[in-house]
Design a protein around this nucleic acid. Sequence first.
RNA 1: GUGGGAUUAGCUCAGUUGGUUAGAGCACUGGUUUGUGGUGCCGGGGGUCACGGGUUCGAGCCCCGCAUCCCACCCCA
Length: 403
Amino acid sequence: MIQSLRGMNDILSDDYERFDYFIQTATAIAKRYGFHYVETPLLEETALFKRSVGESSDIVGKEMYQFTDKGDNDVCLRPEGTAGVVRAFIQQKLDKKGGIHRFYYHGAMFRYERPQKGRLRQFHQFGVESFGVDSVYEDALMIMMVADILKTLGIGYRLKLNSLGNQNCMPDYRVKLVSFIESCGDAICGDCERRKLTNPIRVLDCKNEACQALYTNAPKLINNLCSGCHSDFEKLKTILDQHNIGYEIDTHLVRGLDYYSKTAFEFVSDNIGSQSAIAGGGRYDRLIEFLDGKPTPAVGFAMGIERLLELIVMPEPVRNGYYFGAMENESLPLILKCAEKYRQTEKSVVEYEPKNLKNHLKGADRINARYCAVIGENERNSNSIWIKDLLEQKETIISLDTI
RNA sequence: GUGGGAUUAGCUCAGUUGGUUAGAGCACUGGUUUGUGGUGCCGGGGGUCACGGGUUCGAGCCCCGCAUCCCACCCCA
């Protein structure tokens, strides 16, 4: 038997019901917030991700599906959505056009990782990107939109918030932090040695107890923000307070992608195991110029759909549509004619095997049909069809001439 | 990429120190003698015990390999 590749799943039946319900819900909300759909290719030039996500990240360093195509191009299956949307934004010259551009998207992403619950090699994200808005109100809008989607789906969460600073304060802090780490000498673990070079802020999050003891007095980025970053962060907290959105400040929160600055946030669930981040995002004001566009402020987020699926509280299923059945072979042509007519406006399913009434009712019930329509000998003789409303438990017999 | 656990019917799981034709519940399917479901009763189909080797008179059970899932690490949505 040929099976799907490791970490790549089929989505069908109940899972697809949930998947589709999520997309419909999130799409409706994104539209209400004034966002427009954008579809970008699954395959992009490798350089796009190296320059946006960043070579120091694990995503680019070891998790990309990278290969050379038949035209000798170095290409990658997209590991995340933002880079492609930004490329499209620049390629369509929207950066030069100016103004505000708000997009949402959803689709498959690919990362070559060791799979576990909530972590797949092909997974799906729903995300939004906003271009051209410098105001921290837009950062708040992103967070409110995620909260809105999660609330609508009945999903509980905790919101973690941090500020990563910008080019004015981050580099200074980084120097400060690295010199602090160096002051710890050889006492730090091997992972931290590596992090010191690639992403120093991550050392603060080390699971090693000995490291944690050393870092209690480490400088915190949140205390080293420049005045602009500081006041924006304070303003963001005030806006969230005013809208009754709870949050916790997590000074260790770092986004895994290099392009983020200032606002960083992550929504986590405590009910789905260790892969607990269900949505993450933040501001990335420098990314457009990194990709040769005209400098444009931007902010966005992405949600991991598979991680949300089991948390979604689905609405009660409602009976709908018609089930058609014949009680003997002679009635089958009549039932097929009826179904053809009803199908123009109603969901209609036909059972081809003649059965007694009891089994047809069972069949209609099983597919959750609202109406069970049957033709037997009696109906055939009187040119009519028997229809039972399975919800109201009312029966009617109507003439075939009237349908 | 590193370490650990699991894998028996469509699903959730039993299966004794290695011993005849591998079981249950749910699901599916049929019947229930005059045409009424979701909730009665009776029956039926369905398993290369993940896969490949090995040990043994004999393997679902022991050993090795491999695949997938799960857990921790790394990292992330």
